[in-house]
Structures are given as C-alpha cells and as structure tokens.
C-alpha cells in the first residue's frame, strides 16, 4: 500500500461550530488529489490540517488522526517547522516575500541553516527551473519579487515551496487569482510536479480538477461525500449529491 497520507475520523471545531465531520481519507503518494466542493464545505480547512496551519487560529480544536508515512502529525513530539518543511504549501493568493526573487527561493533553506552560497545558487536555479520560471527571471534574480506578473508570482511561490524539497505539496486554489494563460501554465506545472511530489490541490474549478488530478474528493458541509479516482467521480459518481454538484445543479 503506497498511501502517503491517512486521514482517520478527522473532526475540526471552530469554537463550537464543527467545520470538519469525521473525515476519513487516504491519499496516494506521487499522485495528485483534488478536493472539490462548494465554498465553505471545509476543503481548505482540511488541506490546512495537513501542515497544521490551522493551529494558528484561535479556538480551533482537532479530533482524529492524520498520519503521513506512518507518522501521526498531531503527535505532540512532532516539530511543526520540520513538518512544514516536509509538507509544502502554495496559497490561493500569491504571497511572495518583500525580498528579491533569489531571496524568496532561498528563504526556506536559509531558515533551515543552509548558508553555503553555491548550494543555495544551485537550489534556486533548480527550483526555478522546476517551476518553469527560470528562463523568465534568470536575469533579474536580485530584483524585487513584486515586479513579477501574477502568474509569475504564483510560480515563484511554487518554486519557493519546492526549494526545501518537501514530500507533499499542498495547493490551495492556486489558480483562482490568475488569468487563463497563467492558469494553463501553472496547471502544466502541476502535472509536471506530480512525478516528484504528492500533490493535494483544493479547487473550485471542476475542469481544473478533472485536468490535473488523479483522485478527487467531493466535500459538502464539512463531510467527505465521495472519494474516488477523478475519472469515476466525474463520469460516474456513486452518490447523487456529487452528481448534482458536478453537473452544476448547486454550488
């Protein structure tokens, strides 16, 4: 069994409100898995459970278990910084740091204590190439990241995420703020990255889900309604609700 992530009976409360209800789900390694569902269904919350970014929010309580490669990531002995190095994340809005392009990519490594200049140069180049951005920015690595276009910024964020060599890459609606051309480029990139990373992507765009993911989970009101191969979900969902959503009857 090559499941990278096992989610067992995961429930999450915002204060008293239950935002995730006993979600159980296995995510396969080196595949891409999409979470879809109407807004507010808990897909982003679920995604943020995977690198424990929800911990930052006041009043959040989590029950259940998530194991990654057999390790329970909610185990008190787990170190958050190390977990997050292993589970990278790309956000809905591109969020480059107010630093140069080079410094943006090198940030994660520098934090982790790598100071060797040649190694950093190497990783920066490799990550930018990996994010298909190298050719566009190689001449202005020391310029501010804010000079890049929206699509470039988002790919920069992807490059930044893969620079620390995570195992899993979480993507929270990575294309929602991009124009169609930039979206196509990022989608292309996601397909490329699948080879090396386990990708979990949240999207509200069903076409995108069907294009980039191998597996799809449909969520509704904090519950996991159906989880299967993408083909199956889109062609032949076994639950009526899924079918209604996919065919655009609500959402």
């Amino acid at each position: 069994m090559s499941k990278a992530i096992n989610i067992r009976n995961l429930s999450l409360y915002y204060g008293k409100a239950k935002a995730l209800k006993e979600v159980t789900l296995d995510i396969e390694a080196n595949k891409s898995t999409a979470f879809i569902g109407p807004s507010g269904c808990g897909k982003s919350t679920l995604l943020r459970c995977l690198n424990r970014l929800n911990d930052l929010i006041e009043g959040v309580k989590i029950e259940g278990e998530i194991t990654i490669s057999g390790t329970n990531i909610y185990d008190p002995s787990i170190d958050l910084t190390n977990l997050r190095r292993n589970v990278g994340m790309v956000f809905q809005k591109s969020n480059p740091f107010p630093l140069s392009i080079y410094e943006n990519i090198a940030y994660g490594l520098k934090i982790a204590g790598i100071k060797d200049k040649s190694k950093l140069d190497h990783v920066v180049e490799k990550s930018l190439k990996g994010a298909a951005l190298w050719d566009e920015v190689k001449d202005r690595l020391n310029e501010s990241a804010y000079g890049l276009s929206g699509g470039q910024q988002q790919r920069l964020c992807i490059a930044r995420a893969i620079a620390v060599e995570p195992t899993i890459l979480l993507m929270d609606e990575p294309c929602s703020a991009l124009d169609p051309i930039a979206t196509a480029k990022v989608e292309e990139l996601i397909k490329e990255l699948k080879k090396d990373y386990t990708i979990v992507i949240v999207t509200h765009n069903m076409q995108q889900a069907s294009r980039v993911s191998d597996y799809t989970a449909f969520m509704f009101l904090g519950e996991l309604i159906e989880f299967d191969e993408t083909k199956t979900i889109f062609m032949n969902p076994s639950i009526q609700q899924t079918n209604d959503y996919i065919s655009g009857r609500f959402g």
Binding site: S69, I78, T198
Partner: peptide, 14 residues
C-alpha cells in the same frame, strides 16, 4: 510506501 525526503521525526535545531 513513500518515504520522506527529510526525516519527519527530526527535531528542530535547539
């Protein structure tokens, strides 16, 4: 089973 590229059990530098 997919292995982590970095050891997830590793502790943060003190």
């Amino acid at each position: 089973m997919a292995q982590f590229k970095n050891n997830i059990r590793k502790k943060i530098e003190p």
